[in-house]
């Protein structure tokens, strides 16, 4: 497989009037990877994505998609599918007509009925877009993005407003595309999705890339956590912990296995019950919470 990046962003700047939305941002997305661009609200990720998708021109810096400018629609668009954050379908067209129209305009070929089946909209094919629920519109959007099995797929908050079955179906389709080597760029507010699926994460904050790396690279910068509750007074704990008034205990640890072993040994020796015991590495949520602290 080629190792030339699918997306190259170099020193990207984007300003709206006085507001500097994106500052000197550089990153690349490699073939076949799922890159999650995450960030706090207003971090600049949608602006960045819009430049990479070709909807917005950068104030300065260069962006290449498959080695072309994103403006070069004829070269770039047939190879990429875009799921926008907001819908953008004509309310008077039916579901089938919408998929057919946008699909044809991508210059890829596919079977409309097959795509409708993938997103479970076959039963809604003849309905007007104005009659769809919010979740059905998201699935319609996803259908136009995966029409013709593109090599690169942009998913801007793909599962917002979807029930759990639809979410699973979306990810099953994405997984199939990935098996065929597709590259995925994802933004989402569901950090679990990113944590489970992303090969690499770019964490944006105030227009810059605050952190970048694999999930474990990001979470290893923060301690793991052991939580449990104590019902009765106990001998002094063997390690540093924060105990609240209800007896809930939180232990932060950079050596989770060793500290957990110590704790369990102590509990065994003193016949202490550790209720609701949970231990794990830092979650992405905590990495997010740590941004501002």
């Amino acid at each position: 497989m080629s190792t030339t990046p699918v997306i190259e962003v170099e020193r990207l700047n984007l300003t709206y009037g006085d507001f500097h939305a994106v500052k000197d941002l550089s990153f690349e997305v490699r073939p076949g990877e799922l890159y999650a661009l995450l960030g706090t609200n207003g971090a600049g990720k949608t602006s960045t994505l819009e430049v990479v998708e070709g909807h917005r021109r950068p104030t300065s810096g260069t962006v290449r998609v498959f080695g072309h400018s994103p403006d070069d629609r004829r070269a770039v668009r047939p190879r990429m599918g875009v799921m926008l954050q907001e819908s953008g379908f004509s309310p008077d067209l039916t579901v089938r007509e919408s998929v057919g129209l946008i699909g044809r305009l991508t210059r890829r070929t596919d079977d409309v009925d097959r795509v409708l089946d993938v997103v479970d909209l076959t039963g809604r094919a003849g309905r007007k877009v104005s009659q769809l629920s919010g979740g059905e519109k998201r699935r319609l959007d996803f259908a136009t993005a995966v029409y013709g099995t593109p090599e690169l797929l942009f998913l801007d908050e793909p599962t917002t407003g979807l029930d759990i079955q639809s979410r699973d179906a979306v990810w099953a389709t994405v997984d199939r595309l990935r098996e065929n080597g597709a590259t995925i760029v994802l933004t989402t507010h569901y950090l679990e999705e990113a944590q489970q699926r992303a090969d690499r994460i770019g964490l944006m904050h105030q227009g810059t890339l605050h952190r970048e790396g694999t999930v474990s690279e990001l979470t290893h910068t923060l301690p793991g956590v052991i939580r449990f509750a104590l019902a009765t007074p106990v001998p002094p704990l063997p390690l540093h912990a924060v105990v609240d008034a209800d007896g809930k205990v939180v232990v932060e640890s950079f050596e989770l296995q060793k500290d957990l072993h110590l704790l369990l040994g102590w509990a065994q020796d003193h016949a202490v019950e550790l209720r609701d015991l949970a231990a794990g590495p830092t979650r992405l949520d905590d990495v997010f919470r740590a941004i501002n602290s």
């Binding site: 909807h55 668009r77 047939p78 875009v82 926008l84 953008g88 004509s90 305009l105």
Partner: peptide, 11 residues
């Protein structure tokens, strides 16, 4: 209704 934006995301 963002249909123009949608059309502009095609080729």
């Amino acid at each position: 209704n963002l249909f123009l934006k949608r059309l502009r995301s095609t080729a």
